[in-house]
Design a protein around this nucleic acid. Structure first.
Lengths: 309, 309
DNA sequence: GAAGATGATGCTCACATCGAGCACAAGGGA
DNA sequence: TCCCTTGTGCTCGATGTGAGCATCATCTTC
């Protein structure tokens, strides 16, 4: 019997509800299965490009159009779908990241889920989470350290050493970009629900979709630095503090208000509209809009992240 | 008739011959076709993961083993292989980047080709090349500027504006990371041989393989910053100037010797072996070796690139 | 053996960037 | 009015970066 191959496309759509990052999932009520990312097969004849295929599928599955889209990663492990071992075709999936403004209503069966509920250790806005501390400890205490019994990761590091980088104990050492590394470490340690973990490291998603979620969050955080992606989440005009809240939500880190302000203004990313927003509580805030021209003036028109609250 | 799908894997193997970056190509002598990157189908039953599939293929096609491997991008446009329009299966290719130390002998039919011969404008070690200047000029003079007739890229920019970022005229503004952007700009302008160009912008490769080459070079340059990938190209021990030559070769830019030295030593990336190399001509150079432990000490154990010669 | 060439190495200086904090401005509510 | 809240401007020191001068240790040449 000749095995079959299928090319899947998988969409991670991220949006923002206030300062809560969300992503679109599909439920299968009553099945007891975890939620999954919207995904479907490539239409070999119809879909001109992979990106267009994703856009088509998003419209079909969720009933919305998506603006910014970029390719994330292609997942093709033979055992990524357990059914493949039982005669199902092997599914290679190309994952895409898309950004959506606001949280528009989705087709029934689909909903926006809070992103950090599935990656709870990634939200370090109120300080590096207890979970992250536990993860560090679980590593060191797992007896899987640098000794001869230790399992060794792709880089040839012991788990304990990898934990020291991924889940640093020293305050201020938290690296918000190592999202995928952290998830994979938890997975290998058997702490993630997908790998048999009973600990409270967040509810699982179907198949390897939580890995895709981690990839996407890492990519998005990295992208902040050198592309003006934040504005995909914001309205036409906004206050600098709203902008800051969005960056903080994505980066999962608190920022220093005055420095953030300095950075954004110096970079020429935004220009004042002249209007003010009185709904802030204290002194009215000046309104700004994004300046598309920055892209021709600066090499990295993103928001490099000034640490500290 | 139901159309068929094929999953291809494509390997971009980069190595270094002295200070000349090379990559592995396969020739089809007598066919008149341009050289191509080693690529092959996924073995649906045999290949456990995509990465292992690439390793298997590299061994089969080139007769060598490869150390560092990472996924680059997945190419799936319907028209990427012109044969698809004539009944051939649609081929979606996952491209991988691999790094090889030295230039080991390859299987007959394969050879190492100088990377910059196919992307000549990317080697700015002797100053930003005349080609890059021409490219800038070709854009501005193409009548495809910001006017109503202008074609518009993915970001919504006119070609002229994109040229200003990709091929900057101001000295010191050259951004060595925008490799892919530059190639795509030349492609869209019809200057690349693949898009009908007669200008001397380097010989083409098969299909979209030059795009893959550009992706890979861009990724490699980016990776230098935050991962110690340079050492994949170096012997066990080396002098700091040899290290610098390797970084320069990849980045395509000349560096300031003393600052490079300061950076590498301060970063703790290397440690002195105590030995010296007398073959340099002048004062003997101290020999160094890579310190694998940096990965646990520094967040970004790479070589950020200090400009200027 | 001395002079000069060549490349390695150490150091300084000006300047930009960044983290952190003080102080004040401009509004609202008690 | 006082006080609380948020926005905004500015300063200061620590650190990083681009650029250049000076010296050192070897080889080559005269």
């Amino acid at each position: 019997m000749r095995s079959a191959l299928e090319l899947g496309l998988c969409a991670l759509l991220v949006s923002l509800d206030g300062d809560v990052p969300m992503f679109a999932v599909l439920d299968e009520p009553g099945s007891g299965r975890p939620p999954r990312l919207p995904s479907d097969r490539l239409d070999i004849d119809g879909d001109e490009t992979l990106e267009l295929a994703v856009r088509r599928q998003v419209t079909a599955h969720l009933g919305i159009d998506v603006g910014y889209v970029e390719q994330l990663y292609t997942f093709g492990d033979r055992d990524r779908d357990p059914r493949t071992a039982h005669g199902w075709p092997r599914v290679v999936s190309v994952a895409y990241l898309g950004l959506v403004r606001g949280t528009p209503t989705l087709t029934p069966g689909a909903r926006w889920a809070p992103l950090y509920s599935h990656l709870p250790w990634e939200d370090a806005r109120e300080g590096v989470s207890v979970l992250a501390m536990q993860a560090h400890g679980a590593c060191a205490g797992s007896g899987l350290g640098a000794g001869p019994r230790s399992r060794v990761g792709a880089d040839g590091h012991g788990l304990e050493e990898r934990a020291a980088i991924s889940f640093p104990m020293a305050p201020g050492k938290w690296d918000e970009y190592r999202v995928l590394e952290r998830y994979e470490l938890l997975y290998e340690l058997g702490l993630a629900a997908e790998s048999g973990g009973a600990g409270d490291y967040g509810p699982p998603l179907a198949l390897d979709h939580r890995r895709i979620l981690a990839s996407g969050l890492g990519r998005l955080r990295g992208k902040l630095r050198y592309r003006p992606v934040v504005f995909e989440f914001l309205e036409e005009t906004f206050t600098l503090f709203q902008l800051q809240r969005v960056v903080e939500a994505i980066a999962g880190v608190r920022l220093h208000k005055q420095n953030f302000r300095r950075l954004v203004e110096r970079g020429g990313l935004v220009e004042a509209t002249g209007g003010v927003d009185r709904s802030t509580g204290g002194r009215p805030a000046a309104c700004f809009r994004f300046r598309p021209e920055v892209r021709f003036e600066r090499q990295a028109p993103g928001i490099s992240i000034p640490r500290g609250g």
